[in-house]
């Protein structure tokens, strides 16, 4: 669900403002982040998507200052990180959990030992460490494997240890750097489910980066699209989908590229909420006596409600179909009209 109204009143947990980061200098300089600003509300799961090389990884690493931005500010949980002293930054990092693509577990320690490391670094005393580590391993569903070394665990189990380690010091924010990219689809699903569970049970704010749209569709409340180091789009998923021309929506719900016949009208209908349940297309065909062809359609459930888009082909020019389009808009549907040109393209 998008942050509900009482949450929206709360200040964001993560605020990244005008952050830029350039690697190298002179001709070899690469701008990884270019004036990036975004906000993550408390309790939400925020996804940053983009192609590889778009700067996603650099972005998430600036949130706990593993990467120090050249300019701009990073505020996590009300604390401006860029001006902190080394020791204050270390303390702040203890409240920002991070999960990595390649797990980054110590091979020399058991699952339990890896989780305890986080507590040792946070200064928890030895008795509490053991208890807390067992608790948290139970939470991630790995209680039975506490004594196993990473080499004895599967990828999914290793990532559960990684998540347990990140959660051990009771952070308010969890950062996930492509946590599921090294995992098979089924394991990915189970790890995403775990993210969802801890997000709900612990009220933890999660910021994740991924190149997989399925991850965003699966668990995110909000998302940002990063391209060449810039935020191209950001917002709640449901809002984005009902935004005409949204790149994220198009990426999330690709309609395929079936070619319409020349001289026809192509319309994209965006459904959200209740409209997804109504027989919109049948009604359109009946009321306007149209031979409607479906060129592409996607219906997904986002945060428990149905949303989706359909691309239809109607015979005749857009002008001839104006009445039908108006009728659809009157039903509260979002409609984009294109006319198919002679070459079969859509404009």
């Amino acid at each position: 669900m998008p942050p509900s109204s009482h949450q929206e009143a709360l200040p964001p947990v993560i605020t990244v403002s005008h952050v830029s980061k350039t690697f190298g200098s002179g001709d070899a300089a690469v701008t990884a982040l270019d004036d990036v600003s975004l906000q993550v509300a408390p309790g939400e799961i925020f996804g940053v998507v983009g192609q590889s090389g778009a700067g996603k990884s650099t972005l998430i690493r600036t949130v706990n200052l593993l990467e120090r931005p050249d300019t701009g500010s990073v505020i996590v949980d009300g604390q401006e990180l860029t001006t902190l002293s080394d020791s204050a930054l270390r303390r702040a990092r203890q409240h920002i959990g991070m999960v990595f693509q390649h797990f980054n577990l110590l091979e020399s320690r058991t699952a339990q030992g890896n989780v305890e490391l986080a507590l040792e670094l946070a200064g928890t005393d030895s008795r509490d460490r053991k208890r807390r580590a067992s608790e948290i391993l139970d939470l991630v569903g790995l209680g039975a494997k506490a004594g196993s070394f990473p080499s004895q665990l599967s990828g999914g189990q290793k990532q559960r240890v990684g998540i347990a380690r990140a959660l051990a010091a009771e952070p308010r924010v969890l950062l996930s750097d492509e946590a599921t990219s090294a995992l098979d689809p089924e394991t990915t699903r189970s790890i995403l489910e775990l993210f969802k569970t801890i997000n709900e049970q612990l009220g933890l704010t999660v910021m994740l980066i991924t190149h997989e749209m399925d991850v965003v569709k699966g668990i995110c409340d909000s998302a940002a699209l990063l391209e060449h180091g810039r935020v191209v789009e950001t917002g709640g998923l449901v809002e984005l989908i009902s935004t005409p021309g949204s790149r994220l929506a198009a990426d999330l719900f690709p309609l395929g590229d079936a070619t319409p016949a020349p001289g026809t009208t192509v319309i994209d209908i965006t459904f959200s909420g209740g409209s997804a349940d109504r027989p919109v297309i049948a009604q359109l065909a009946r009321d306007h006596s149209l031979d409607v062809s479906i060129l592409g359609a996607v219906i997904e459930s986002i945060g428990g409600s149905q949303a989706g888009r359909t691309r239809l082909e109607l015979p005749g020019t857009p002008a001839q179909n104006a009445a039908a389009v108006d009728d659809l808009r009157d039903q509260g549907l979002l409609v984009e009209v294109h006319s198919a040109d002679a070459a079969g393209g859509v404009s």
């Binding site: 706990n64 593993l66 270390r90 303390r91 702040a92 990092r93 203890q94 920002i96 959990g97 991070m98 990595f100 980054n104 577990l105 110590l106 490391l117 986080a118 670094l121 946070a122 380690r165 990140a166 010091a169 950062l175």
Partner: peptide, 9 residues
């Protein structure tokens, strides 16, 4: 691993 340790403060 060094990065993970940094992230843990």
């Amino acid at each position: 691993l060094i990065e993970a340790a940094h992230s843990l403060g």
